[in-house]
Design a protein around this nucleic acid. Structure first.
Lengths: 204, 204
DNA sequence: TCACAATTCTGCACCCACTGCAAACTTGCA
DNA sequence: TGCAAGTTTGCAGTGGGTGCAGAATTGTGA
């Protein structure tokens, strides 16, 4: 009736979001390991047991691996104009994804990045979920490149692009560099596609 | 007197190695999360409490972040012939490191990789410790390139090279491809330095 | 409107990872 | 041999994480 979702599902989404927001903000205020699951669930108004009905662990409440992200990126890659090569298609797809994400919840991304950058455990989670996404993405890239997903090229392309993303995100959240995320990522990808050429010439 | 190390230090090294080997082999046999710290320490002949005197956690007993690796790689990069550019120096340094590691404990590396590849948590640890090493390596590369360590180029070069390493290691442990690790890594780095050129031309 | 089925929430009991502390033990050295 | 320093261990406790079963809530058909 309202928004195509019943009260049940709306409440679930709401609870999940409340837990996630509570986890990020509490961790940002008091430090990740000074925040217990009990604190988070209390702030979100549910029992500690319920927390584990939504997230597999405390870490997941902060990094929140988006289960739809992989499929969405796959579609983005395949939907790019046919004249683009695999690398350009991947770059365009990443640009689209980031533009949309920033518009939806950019300030939350920034807060999350700040917390994550200071906690190796969380950073590890980010890498792991990125790696998961890379596996699916490699399929899409392989399809565009007319290769098998087990070939070196698709795997390396998405892995290297992932590395570029991480570098760009880190620079973005570092506030040293005030430029927007899209620019930073574009710069990194261009350098990558130029064979990591040094300022004075190609990579030697 | 004997090997420059007293009985004390030799025993410590021995215990650490025993714990690490026990962790890897037990995890390989029974699955990582069906093995408890108690099992590992029992197999190594020490008390569970002692386990934590050697490793910060169960994961560390398997991924065992080598505390000297970063400094060693830094030296390797700086010690490469002066005529090599940053990228070539990094490639050569990685080759040296791998050749030495394979000779010392190649079969253990393989077993470890097999375990790690199937456990997101461990994979995450690998990424995290890799990321840690990348920060130090970026300094060395920046020095060779005559740039600041906060510049994009050094960070992206080591991050992309790290991605190439992970891809090469994964392919190596996959046993689909029987070629030796050095070849696989060289191939990945070459493709990277060629700007991730597709089989039919440069990356578009 | 009401009652029933399905789903969600919650408390409880439990396992395991991990830590600080202090006592027992081992090693190195005078 | 005996002492100082370092290592191992047990113990007690915290917190993350899970299975289970009952209570609470919601969707649905009569």
């Amino acid at each position: 009736m309202n928004g195509e979702l019943g009260l049940r599902d709306r409440k679930k989404r709401q609870t999940r979001l409340a837990l996630s927001r509570a986890a990020v903000t509490l961790a940002h205020e008091h430090g990740y390991d000074h925040v217990t699951v009990e604190d988070i669930s209390a702030a979100a108004g549910v029992s500690p047991r319920t927390f584990f009905n939504y997230f597999a662990g405390k870490e997941d409440a902060i990094v929140a691996p988006d289960p739809e992200a992989a499929a969405r990126m796959r579609r983005r890659v395949l939907d790019q104009p046919a004249e683009l090569g695999p690398g350009a298609a991947l770059k365009a797809a990443l640009g689209d994804e980031i533009a949309e994400g920033l518009a939806d919840e950019g300030e939350m991304w920034l807060l999350r990045m700040r917390v994550v950058q200071q906690h190796p455990v969380l950073l590890a989670k980010v890498f792991a979920s990125g790696e998961q996404a890379e596996r699916e993405l490699a399929d899409a890239v392989a399809e565009r490149a007319g290769q098998s997903a087990t070939d070196l090229y698709p795997k390396l392309l998405v892995a290297a692009a992932g590395a570029a993303c991480r570098v760009a995100f880190a620079r973005w959240s570092d506030q040293e560099d005030g430029r927007p995320l899209e620019i930073l990522l574009g710069e990194a990808l261009d350098l990558l596609y130029a064979g990591l050429a040094t300022p004075t010439g190609p990579c030697t």
